[in-house]
């Protein structure tokens, strides 16, 4: 034990370096493998050239790597990191390993907001895509508040069963609202339908920048709250007794989570189960302490979603599968495993 004043509970620099290396390896793999095969050496020289600020050569491989694949992989990585951190935070806050934006219906809520923005043409002149984004964030937050107040009414201890029940009911409610909107805004049907299919295809560097900014801001807030999240994960009453400002921390976490989910949904559509699966896998390695869990989820979530995206791009090449199909496939199976285990324990 060091005698050097304040110590952190988080990882050593070496561990961070190891995580970063793994993520980087996955990143390199995902950039160099794709629908069109570009030689690895060419990929490297293209990316290196772009980093040096050279103008991109006017070849199709340059366009493919620099304008299509690279921004997509970056957006996928950032989305994976963001959704995983959100999932970890919710699972800690609610003391429930099955809580997540998609199981609770927060993502559906966010997409409802985005669809309303598309259907009724809500835009902000300054930023063309801000309309859907702001609406997605607002609806994500409203969804969390509705779901949790319902859940607390029903069952103050927020047991797994009631959380899942309310998530299912809320998702069904939202999808019926969605079809209602589709009926009234049939002229935008085409746009809305394709939007809700969710796609990270056509991600731009601008999207990546927005995601990065949201992740730094909201993810930063969540990572800083690791001690409070530990307290919540042990129990909300216990958290109150040891001096956690329960109301303020809960509100902060919920705002950060809904903002982050809102941004992710408005850019990439609803991608289910990432926020559920990653923290669960990561927890098996790091343990439940959020000082380690949260940063590891950043790296783990990014790597996991990049690999899912790679699978979505490659399985039926040249056809593309929606990335949500891959994550839901893996996620649903894991969901059942977690659910089964948690029921057996209790």
């Amino acid at each position: 034990m060091g005698r050097s004043g304040r110590k952190t509970e988080s990882f050593s620099l070496l561990a961070y370096l190891a995580f970063a290396c793994v993520m980087l390896a996955v990143f390199v793999l995902c950039v160099s493998v794709g629908s069109v095969s570009v030689p690895f050496s060419e990929t490297v020289s293209l990316v290196a050239g772009a980093l040096k600020g050279n103008a991109a050569p006017s070849t199709s491989s340059a366009s493919i790597i620099l304008a299509s694949r690279l921004p997509r992989v970056i957006c996928v990585a950032l989305t994976g990191a963001a959704l995983s951190v959100c999932g970890a935070a919710m699972q800690g806050l609610l003391k429930n390993p099955l809580a997540d934006g998609s199981t609770l219906g927060v993502s559906s809520g966010a997409s409802l907001g985005a669809v309303i923005a598309i259907a009724f043409g809500i835009t902000f002149p300054a930023l063309p895509f801000a309309g859907t984004m702001v609406m997605a964030m607002i609806f994500a937050f409203a969804s969390i508040v509705i779901i949790l107040s319902l859940a607390y009414k029903l069952d103050y201890s927020l047991s797994t069963n009631s959380i899942i029940l309310i998530g299912v009911i809320y998702s069904m409610f939202v999808s019926s609202l969605l079809s209602l909107i589709l009926t009234f805004a049939s002229d935008k049907l085409h746009n809305i339908t394709f939007w809700t299919m969710g796609s990270l295809a056509g991600s731009s560097y601008k999207n990546a920048l927005v995601l990065l900014a949201a992740l730094i801001l909201c993810g930063g807030v969540l990572l800083r709250l690791h001690r409070e999240l530990n307290a919540f994960a042990v129990g909300e009453e216990n958290a109150r007794h040891i001096g956690v400002n329960v109301r303020r921390v809960r509100l902060t976490v919920l705002i950060a989570v809904s903002a982050l989910i809102g941004v992710c949904v408005s850019i990439g559509g609803t991608i289910g189960f990432v926020g559920l699966v990653t923290p669960h896998i990561v927890r098996m390695i790091t343990g439940p302490n959020h000082a380690k869990l949260m940063p590891a989820c950043l790296f783990g979530g990014a790597s996991f979603l990049m690999l899912c995206d790679l699978a979505a791009r490659m399985i039926a090449n040249p056809l593309q599968l929606p990335i949500g199909v891959v994550t839901s496939l893996i996620g649903a199976v894991l969901f059942i495993v977690i659910f089964y285990r948690s029921r057996r324990v209790s």
Partner: peptide, 27 residues
């Protein structure tokens, strides 16, 4: 009808593009 990858379009480099996207008068 199928979803295909952007990379493939760039790689296959068409001489012509026909889009049936509807235009709603904004953007």
């Amino acid at each position: 009808w199928a979803e295909i990858s952007e990379e493939q379009v760039i790689e296959r480099n068409p001489d012509y593009i026909v889009t049936i996207t509807m235009y709603f008068g904004e953007g």
